[in-house]
């Protein structure tokens, strides 16, 4: 079927079977390999992307259900050439080990901060518990999110002020 999606701000038209999971459309049709395949049934979170501002498991989201929607992937998180504050925190904290789950982790954390800019530790744990990490980077993930929590807005305001 023919359908279109807005992916990382860009409108993309596709001709594809409607039951194809969004994950494989992103990876193989649109060449966005940052989103990962882990389990295929929404159990591990490695494939997490944002669809219309909500985190979804793209491995079990048929592309037809996303038709016309706005999708953000790890590749679309940076703005104006600046990494998302969470990505900077991930690097500063040295979160990734094998790194395979981290795109999904960051997308889950980004949604948390978008809806709750100053989450408490319990909020972070609750929001991140759907994302599995086999290497066990969980404590660094919390530290990285905490380092941004409650500060991102202030940073943005400050950065905006400097630009003016």
């Amino acid at each position: 079927m023919a359908l279109s999606l807005t992916v990382n701000g860009e409108r993309r038209s596709l001709d594809i079977e409607g039951d194809t999971p969004l994950l494989w459309v992103l990876r193989d049709e649109l060449g966005l390999k940052g989103t990962k395949f882990g389990c295929g049934v929404g159990l591990c979170g490695a494939c997490t992307v944002h669809l219309n501002g909500q985190p979804v498991r793209s491995c079990s989201t048929p592309v037809e259900s996303a038709a016309g929607g706005e999708v953000t992937t790890i590749e679309g998180l940076a703005e104006d050439g600046q990494l998302h504050p969470l990505q900077k925190a991930w690097i500063a904290e040295g979160v990734p080990q094998c790194g395979y789950c981290q795109s999904g982790q960051i997308m889950s954390a980004a949604h948390l901060l978008a809806t709750n800019p100053a989450p408490a530790r319990d909020d972070i744990v609750a929001a991140m518990t759907g994302n599995l990490c086999r290497c066990g980077t969980y404590s660094r993930i919390i530290a990285a999110v905490e380092s941004v929590a409650g500060k991102s807005l202030a940073y943005d305001a400050q950065a905006a002020g400097e630009e003016r």
């Binding site: 790890i74 590749e75 690097i91």
Partner: peptide, 13 residues
Amino acid sequence: GRLDAHAKSTGTA
């Protein structure tokens, strides 16, 4: 830190 952290935090690894 880790030299691969940037690539693994931006989906480019």
